[in-house]
Design a protein around this nucleic acid. Structure first.
Lengths: 325, 325
DNA sequence: CCTCTGTGTGTAACCGGTTACAGATAAAGT
DNA sequence: ACTTTATCTGTAACCGGTTACACACAGAGG
């Protein structure tokens, strides 16, 4: 490994001078600088981040904690975060928590142990004391909070919008799919939908589900049509479940959107490719990731007047599983 | 921050002793050990990985470089890698290369700068000299190579299998979608399919595409049916494109699989949820990730007799876009 | 001519761990 | 009783950077 000492020797100067050149601070004579630059190029030297991080007590790493990268909503977030961070010279330490407190704790601990300069987390356990004890910039992603800066979309409004849309488009026996109880955003959109449905003049029923996974989505879809076979409007808990419901409806010979309308949530990329294409409530996942990263960077740089919370707009995307009306 | 010195003071011993307790090496008296443990618990101490990493010249980090986490095939790989690594106490530094050499170089550099103990990469630029110069355990994922240990699925065989399947099931005017030219596995499966088609007694045509992205998949599907409207069997370049093709076929009123059969590649989770469900060539992505991680760990630990290459089986998954007989 | 200030550079301490080495003690062997 | 060996613990060097501090020197101002 080429170290700063090797460069210093090669350039015939002290390590302090090399460091000054590297960091562009302090005084360095023009020709000395040149010699050092040449030595660096000659030896193909690149400074050891670990040593730097130890002394400065901060790295260029940022911890990103997601529930499960396998759920297509999260890669979008991750990608947004990464694009923004890498542009600013930060790198990503990634963890999947599976909504499991134990794993979450482990990752937070390694983040700290590795001197990350900030953490972005999409977690449901923000209230736990680990986060309190943390004196690191923290941004919540896809979750709201009183206590920490956060970037999220308005789930309640999204739920309302989904319900309102189905009602407007003439659905009369609506089935609302309720997402996992321990996932906050799932409950927000559920609440929003319930609000809207309650004050409208429609019949509705609720199907409770306990996961968003691909494996189980089909099961929920089957259960839905078994229990509520005459439903003519379905508000899915997310697009995965929505797509499974389309599949099952087609399987059972129902016409979409004539017999049954379906609306999803998230607008994951593949909802444009289902047949029929899925109408859905869009959360701008990629942008949310970017915003979270920007917010974190501003917090790290202690820029004044950092908004504590960014609420991103949700948006109805009308495709083919809702009527044109 | 609580350091080893604080623990040493609290326990009334030297830092060396604390270190010995932490790492469970050297001699430590039973009651001394107890005192140290208590001090650690008392102060809620957790060692600084950065300092450790600096001295030992190795961290517990592993670099994972993927083309694009947003493509649903890769999160599966990533998850497999992560599950296996985190169990062994390693953490993940993640980068998206976008098949872009510049980004790839940057990430490899930060991996090195952060003292990673190994790298797993799904890259097309292994031949570049950066990798040669690297004296770090390296495992290729989803790519084959003469020079490095690798975990990949047999793309040629997969392509052959896809073609053979369509031929057996009676397709007579097959369209083969060729994936991006710069992506190695895309070309392997293409070659395999070409081989099989060439020596069979069928007509076939080739549609060249330049991306796997969701945004463009639909365009390829439209182009396909515009150019080859009477095709009765389609070998998609991957499942994303396959699902887009299903969508477009339905849109154009074609019956699947009666009028046109479609076979995808990868078996991403959502291919089970399309309508009709997509027949496809499965690559065991999650397991590939795990195997790559295992292989890397064995290489890191210098275990003898590490197989240099693991070829995972591909498998035909028959669903509803191919005929039953 | 002398002080003051701005430049340029090196020495050494420091970050928080790990470990080589030395020294102390006790038990075991001769 | 004396050496040998095993066990236990502390001191200090080390990892590769950063930076406080000291020092040297040149030009400006009095």
């Amino acid at each position: 490994m080429v170290t700063i000492k090797d460069v210093a020797r090669e350039a015939g100067v002290s390590v302090a001078t090399v460091s000054r050149v590297l960091n562009d601070n302090g005084y360095v004579g023009a020709d000395t600088r040149k010699k050092v630059m040449e030595a660096i190029a000659e030896l193909n030297y690149s400074p050891n981040e670990v040593a730097r991080s130890l002394y400065k007590r901060e790295s260029r790493l940022i911890g990103l904690l997601l529930p499960d990268i396998t759920n297509p909503f999260f890669p979008q977030l991750a990608r947004g975060v990464e694009d923004e961070l890498s542009q600013a010279g930060y790198r990503l330490l990634l963890g999947n928590s599976d909504e499991n407190i134990q794993k979450e704790l482990e990752y937070i601990q390694t983040f700290v142990q590795n001197n990350v300069v900030g953490i972005i987390t999409a977690t449901n356990h923000v209230d736990y004391k680990i986060y309190e004890a943390l004196d690191l910039p923290l941004v919540l992603l896809d979750r709201a909070s009183e206590n920490y800066p956060a970037v999220y979309a308005d789930g309640r409004e999204g739920g309302r919008l989904a319900a309102k849309t189905l009602i407007e488009k003439g659905a009369e026996r609506i089935t609302l799919v309720k997402g996992p109880a321990n996932i906050k955003p799932a409950q927000d959109r559920f609440q929003g939908a319930i609000e809207e449905l309650s004050q409208a003049d429609v019949d509705f029923s609720v199907l409770s589900t306990t996961s968003y996974s691909f494996e189980e989505a089909q099961g929920w879809a089957e259960e839905l049509f078994d229990k509520f076979s005459d439903t003519d409007g379905i508000i899915a808990s997310n697009d995965i479940v929505g797509i499974a419901i389309i599949h099952e409806a087609m399987e059972r010979g129902k016409r979409i959107p004539e017999d049954v309308q379906i609306i999803g949530y998230d607008d994951i990329p593949q909802s444009r490719l289902s047949y029929p294409t899925l109408s859905t409530i869009r959360q701008p996942a990629y942008e949310m990731g970017r915003e979270a990263a920007k917010l974190l960077i501003r917090t790290i740089k202690k820029e004044p007047g950092v908004e504590q919370t960014i609420q991103m707009p949700v948006e109805l995307i009308e495709r083919k599983t809702t009527r044109k009306e």
